[in-house]
Amino acid sequence: MEIDTMLTLYRRMFLIRSVEERIKAEYQNRNIRMAVHLSIGQEAVAAGVLLAARPTDCCLSTHRCHAHYLGKGGNLQEMIDELYSLETGCSRGYGGSMHLFDKKVNMWGSSSIVGGSIPIAVGMGLALKQAGTDSLSISFMGDGGGDEGAFYESLNLAALLAVPVMFVFENNRYSTITPQAKRQAALDVILKARSFGVEGVSVDGNDAVQVYETCLPAMDNIRQRQRPFLIEAVTYRLCAHVGPGSDFGPGRRPETELEEWRSREPLGRLASRIIHERPNGAALISAAQAHVLAEVDTVFESAKRRFDEVNARVGLAAPKPPDPSRV
């Protein structure tokens, strides 16, 4: 892979990671007044899939949509404004963290009803086909989406009506803290897709290069053949299902698993590869990081300042401090 492509992947992943780390840090100030579902640990899926996509391809997501929005190239300031409930937010203050929308980059929104956006993505693909374009629809879902009937109905509809849609089955193996094996009798989603007439492939979702290199020919294929395709990206969420905390420990996810997946987290892996392949790799990465961090800082400071200005007018009471007994 070209070094430029690897660096682009890295920049996008680092942007997603930095934004989410900053959300975690700011969350204690209680002015991001909404639930946030972080993708820390899953950045390679959003970055790899969406770098392989064209700007004209249309994307839909789930409640965990920050990474997909940023991966698609959604406006950062408007996203953070949305998290700070500002009218200048990407969804004009109506959507919030779970409903990020940026028509300019064909990010068409997301549903916080698990599985809800899957059939909608099939409809977007149908419309793109009817309009005679060679664009495709990209449907992000989690393994929880695979519990829902809508997922299977959508596989059937997409195959039956020959819809150009890429199903991205982002398998982080948990619905909140309930493992996939406790929810699904058969785990092989590729087999399930095939039985509905949808071809698919499973990849290491923490390897951005593999995700990207798998998606590129798969997407070409969808465009040419006007057929759906499913990619399963196996990954792991390093934060809690919701909020800035963690959900590891007795009765929750096992700590040992966290250690295992931390060692496989996607940013470090890509950085090692870049450094390994290029003598100046470390310098290139540092430069990319500095650039992103400066941008994130500017954007958050601007949003926070304007939040304070609005609240000086509206006068909402300070929210209660978070309950430490809840994760």
């Binding site: 929104g109 809800g116 059939p119 909608i120 149908l126 309009a131």
Partner: peptide, 26 residues
Amino acid sequence: EVRCFDVPLSEDSLIGMGVGAAIQGR
């Protein structure tokens, strides 16, 4: 039959599909 077509008995997803097509201007 591209503009008037028969469908499976998948009510919820059929409407989801309509929503998606409508969002894209159909």
